[in-house]
Write a protein that binds this DNA or RNA. Structure first.
Length: 282
DNA sequence: AAGAGACCCTGGATGC
DNA sequence: TGCATCCAGGGTCTCT
């Protein structure tokens, strides 16, 4: 489940691996990866001869800027991941779920693997990026300087469960199910608390936990619980630092009370019923 | 307008 | 053991 730290890790590895490379060919056998049938059919022609200029990230979107002033936008969704192959295709990391591939003129190859075919790829002029994200109402990235404590307070001041708000990319961008559980545990906030009921001190705790935990996620290379791997094929290690996610029934690391799992916004929410109480006034 | 729920997809886990 | 069913979940779409 790639979230901000996983996507940032991917972007950093790809930046090292593919910037400056020239595209020899590109192909895909998965139409639903693209917005239209016509883009799917012409993706090879669209990319051939172009060069990778730089890489960026907005929330969970990967931005691959091309020399032609176009940008390839990739969303990994649930099970999508990139594999960077230096030479001839390494069958150990290839896995039968390659949906899209780019061959470079130096013989290396960038593979996009996605078991569940939820991933999406767009290609558009750089000048259309603002419209692309505006149309999706993407909020400020959780680790960007614009995402200040004041901004977060405004964004969270809605009559919805705080867990649902943290997951909503139009509220704050980059957080998914794993990190929202971890952030709320660290901030000692019950996942069902209404955003509009939060006191300033509670928002401050969420803000600090959010920045700290996402940065720790990046330092550890992300969470490898099921599908996620770095483009190099290596595992991340944040799973060793998590306190509540998928630990239902196990003792809370703070107070030893068994972790509980409930469903919020159609997602599993894990929390400590003792450390994260629903305020009686709520 | 904003919130809630369905839907996509498939491997792995669970149940009988 | 083997088959069927359930579950995970990000974002988009539809419904209320």
């Amino acid at each position: 489940m790639p979230e901000l730290p996983e996507v940032e890790t991917v972007v950093r590895e790809l930046r090292q691996g593919i910037v400056g490379k020239k595209i020899k060919s590109a192909e895909s056998d998965t139409p639903q990866l693209f917005k239209t049938e016509s883009i799917f059919r012409s993706i090879g022609e669209l990319l051939r001869g172009d060069m990778i200029k730089s890489l960026g990230r907005q929330g969970k979107y990967i931005l691959i800027y091309l020399k032609s002033k176009r940008v390839l936008i990739v969303h990994l969704k649930m099970t999508g991941h990139f594999l960077l192959e230096s030479g001839s295709r390494n069958h150990e990391s290839s896995n039968g779920y390659i949906r899209f591939s780019i061959k470079f003129t130096d013989g290396s190859e960038l593979l996009f693997s996605d078991v569940r075919k939820f991933g999406r790829i767009w290609i558009l002029p750089e000048s259309h990026l603002a419209d692309f994200f505006g149309g999706r109402k993407l909020a400020y990235d959780a680790l960007s300087p614009q995402c200040s404590e004041e901004y977060l307070h405004t964004q969270l001041s809605r009559n919805r469960a705080i867990k649902a708000l943290l997951l909503d990319q139009s509220c704050v961008a980059g957080i998914g199910n794993i990190y929202s559980d971890e952030i709320l545990w660290a901030a000692r906030i019950h996942p069902l608390r209404r955003g509009s009921s939060l006191m300033e001190t509670e928002v401050r705790r969420i803000f600090k936990s959010m920045k700290d935990i996402l940065k720790l996620g990046i330092r550890t290379g992300g969470t490898s619980i099921r599908d996620y791997r770095k483009p190099s094929g290596q595992y991340g290690s944040f799973q060793n630092y998590r306190k509540v996610y998928q630990r239902a029934g196990l003792p809370c690391p703070r107070c030893k009370t068994p972790i509980r799992r409930i469903v919020v916004a159609q997602r599993g929410a894990h929390f400590c019923p003792d450390c994260q109480k629903l305020a009686t006034s709520d």
